[in-house]
Design a protein around this nucleic acid. Structure first.
Lengths: 209, 209
DNA sequence: AGAAACCAACCGTTCATACGGTTTTTCTTT
DNA sequence: AAAGAAAAACCGTATGAACGGTTGGTTTCT
C-alpha cells in the first residue's frame, strides 16, 4: 500500500496531526514549553479541544510526537547534506546554523529538551528517541567529515561540539548578541576545526611514512 | 561604613533574601522555571508568603535577583581562576565543567535564560545584566589565554565556544549520555583548542621573523 | 452497525498576586 | 534617655484566571 493510498479517515487524521504539530511548534517557539497549553494549541490550530485530545491524549503525548517529528526533520536534513557530497561540506557550519538551528523548529525542540530535564514523564517518553537521533544524526555527519582524515572518534567529538555550540549560542548569546557577533564565533569555530583537521592529517602522514 | 556594620534590619533582610534565593535555585534546578512557583519557594525556604513578596514583589523580580546573584558567582569564579595564574590554566576546561557548569546553580541559570527567551518581561529585566556579565566574564577569561599568543578577537571566540559548548552539553547530551562520554568531548575540545593555538603561535613567529 | 473522529461543557488544582493586619526596628522629639 | 511616631519587615488568607485532563454525547467514515 503506497503512502498516497490513504483512506479518507487516515487522511483526515494525518492532516489534523500535522496542523496540531505545527501549531504546537509555533507556540513552543513563541511562548515556551509550560505556557504552551493545550488550550492555546487548540486555538492556534483552529481545532476543537476534543479533537486534539483524541489524537494526543495528554500534553506529554503531544510533545513527544512533536519531538519525534523534529528529530526526523533533522535526520532528513543531514541525509540531504551527506548526499550532496563535497558541495555539502562547503560552509556546512553556516548553512546548518541558518537552515537548522536558527529556526522556530529548533527553538521548539530546545524547549522540549530543556523541559525534559525537569519533567520526568516527558524525559521517559523521549529518551530513547533522542538517543537514536543522536546516533543516526552523528553517523550521518561523521560520513561528511570522514574524508578529512581523522578517526571517527575525533570526528564524532567535532560533530558533538558543533551541535552543542549552536545550541549554546541559541540559549546564551542569541539573547543579547546580534547576528553578526554570533556568526563571527561560528566562522572562528570553522577555522579552528580546519586547523585541527589539517594538523591531524599532517601527523598521520608523518607516522605512516 | 564597612559591610560588616549592618543594622539589624539590613541583616535580617539580607538573610531572608539569601534563604529565598537558594531555595529558588534548588527549585529551578529540580522543577524548572514555570513549575518553580512562589508557593513552592516559600515552602522550601520556610518563610511566609508575605515575607517573600515583600522583598520580591513579583516572580520576575525574584528570578532577576537570582540571575544577578548567579552572574556574580560566575564572575567571582573567573576572577579566582585568573588570579591563580598558570596554575589556573591547567585543566581549565574540566574544572570549569565540574565546578561551574555541572552544578545546580548553573542549571538554575539555564532555566532562567531559557525562560527569558519567551518571557519578555524577564528578558527586559535581565538583558542589561546579562550583557555586562558576558563582557566582564569574557574579559577575565581572555586574560587567562592571552599569553597563548593569539589576538584577543580569536581568544574571545574560543571563550565563547567553550561556554556555549558546555551549555549545549547540559541541554543536549547530559539528558542521554553518561558522564564519561561528555568528558571525552570536553577533552577533545581541549586538544582542538591547543592545536589551534599552537598553529596560530607558529604562524605568528613566521610572519614576525 | 460499529468504529473512528470530533465536539463542548466542566471538573479539581494551582498559579501569581492582592490585601489587611501584626510585629520589629529605626528615627525623632522631648 | 524615654516616648512615641514612622517605616520596614513579616504573616495568613483571599481571589480570579488558567491549567491539564475528564466525560458524555454527536457526527463522519468504513
Amino acid at each position: 500500500m503506497a503512502t498516497t493510498e490513504l483512506s479518507r479517515q487516515q487522511q483526515k487524521s494525518q492532516d489534523m496531526k500535522r496542523r496540531v504539530r505545527s501549531a504546537a511548534i509555533a507556540s513552543l517557539a513563541e511562548l515556551g514549553y509550560d505556557r504552551t497549553s493545550i488550550k492555546r494549541v487548540v486555538e492556534r490550530a483552529d481545532v476543537s479541544q476534543g479533537a486534539l485530545l483524541h489524537h494526543f491524549p495528554t500534553k506529554t503525548d503531544l510533545m513527544a510526537a512533536v519531538a519525534e517529528h523534529l528529530f526526523g526533520r533533522a535526520v532528513r536534513w543531514a541525509r540531504m547534506m551527506a548526499g550532496a557530497g563535497d558541495a555539502g561540506l562547503q560552509s556546512l557550519t553556516m548553512r546548518s546554523w541558518k537552515e537548522q538551528f536558527r529556526t522556530d523548529e529548533y527553538a521548539a525542540l530546545l524547549e522540549i529538551l530543556t523541559a525534559a530535564r525537569t519533567h520526568k514523564d516527558l524525559h521517559a517518553r523521549i529518551a530513547g528517541t533522542l538517543r537514536d537521533w543522536h546516533d543516526v544524526n552523528e553517523a550521518e555527519l561523521v560520513r561528511l567529515f570522514r574524508e578529512a582524515g581523522a578517526d571517527d572518534s575525533r570526528i564524532s567529538s567535532i560533530v558533538a561540539i558543533s551541535r552543542c555550540l549552536m545550541s549554546g549560542l541559541l540559549v546564551h548569546d542569541a539573547l543579547v548578541r546580534d547576528e553578526r557577533e554570533v556568526e563571527k564565533v561560528l566562522q572562528d569555530w570553522d577555522a579552528i576545526r580546519e586547523t585541527y583537521l589539517q594538523a591531524v592529517r599532517c601527523e598521520h602522514k608523518l607516522s605512516s611514512s
